[in-house]
């Protein structure tokens, strides 16, 4: 018997409702990816991604797509951490996130952590297209193993394009089978939690944020475009979140 993984896609479409708020004409998820609209504030619509099944497991292929139109404001979070698990199906699982923020739109993409469990094998891609006058806050956090556990294999690629130009394209590979040195002093150096925060604002084109180091293991870096990246490493998920929250608050 051939075991094949689960395929699931969730889609969100956010539009200016013409009355100072944001409408969600498309809000659909299937199988393990359920979406719930929760109470927003002001013009912003808020959506929770609820994991209705465990996973992704080996061989699963999940995809999440969100599109934010001119004048719309969308904030997306998740109800719990995503846990990459080994499965019966052979091979890697995939999780693809595609985000598109049109000119005049705003997206806050703040999901909970991705935890790579021992024996799992996950390839995550996050591709973001941001219009010249759009705003974005995006957070990604990877946690290597549950408490005291060796991680699975995790490869995560994050690319961000602003007004058609690539401002960030990075891939981090870690865990058993990843290219050598991933846990060494050039890459993760024994840290078990790593995160990125991408902030895109049109005003950064004229006035880029200043580069600075916030404590040990956190750097704020202006990218080659109207965007900034915070990269952080930490001993665990809690310390990582604290570091990224502080960095986000410093953007004002």
């Amino acid at each position: 018997m051939t075991v094949t993984g689960v395929r699931a896609t969730a889609r969100i479409l956010a539009r200016d409702d013409g009355r100072g708020g944001t409408a969600l004409p498309v809000l659909e998820g299937d199988g393990p990816l359920a979406l719930r609209r929760t109470r927003g504030s002001g013009a912003e619509a808020r959506v929770m991604l609820v994991g209705a099944m465990s996973g992704p497991l080996g061989g699963d292929h999940f995809a999440v797509e969100a599109e934010v139109g001119d004048g719309a404001r969308l904030s997306v979070g998740s109800a719990a951490a995503t846990i990459a698990l080994p499965g019966q199906a052979k091979g890697e699982s995939r999780y693809d996130v595609r985000l598109n923020v049109a000119d005049g739109g705003e997206l806050c993409w703040l999901p909970e952590q991705l935890i790579s469990v021992h024996g799992s094998d996950l390839y995550v891609t996050t591709r973001v297209e941001v219009g010249a006058d759009a705003r974005l806050v995006l957070r990604e956090e990877q946690v290597l193993g549950r408490a005291g556990e060796e991680p699975g294999r995790l490869t995560s690629r994050l690319s961000v394009r602003v007004a058609g130009r690539m401002v960030l394209d990075q891939e981090l590979a870690c865990g058993p089978g990843a290219p050598g040195g991933w846990d060494g002093p050039a890459v993760l150096g024994g840290y078990r939690a790593v995160g990125q925060l991408v902030v895109v604002r049109p005003e950064f084109g004229e006035r880029p944020v200043g580069a600075r180091v916030l404590g040990d293991g956190v750097a704020v870096m202006p990218l080659a475009g109207p965007a900034a990246l915070v990269t952080a490493v930490a001993a665990d998920a809690l310390r990582l979140r604290r570091a990224l929250d502080e960095a986000l608050a410093a953007f004002g």
Binding site: R157, S159, D169, Q170, E171, L172, A173, P179, P185, A186, V187, L188, G189, Y191, V194, V213, G217, V218, A219, M221, T231, A232, V233
Partner: peptide
Amino acid sequence: PAASAPLLEI
């Protein structure tokens, strides 16, 4: 390729 090394950047 886009292989990155967080500690090199920080």
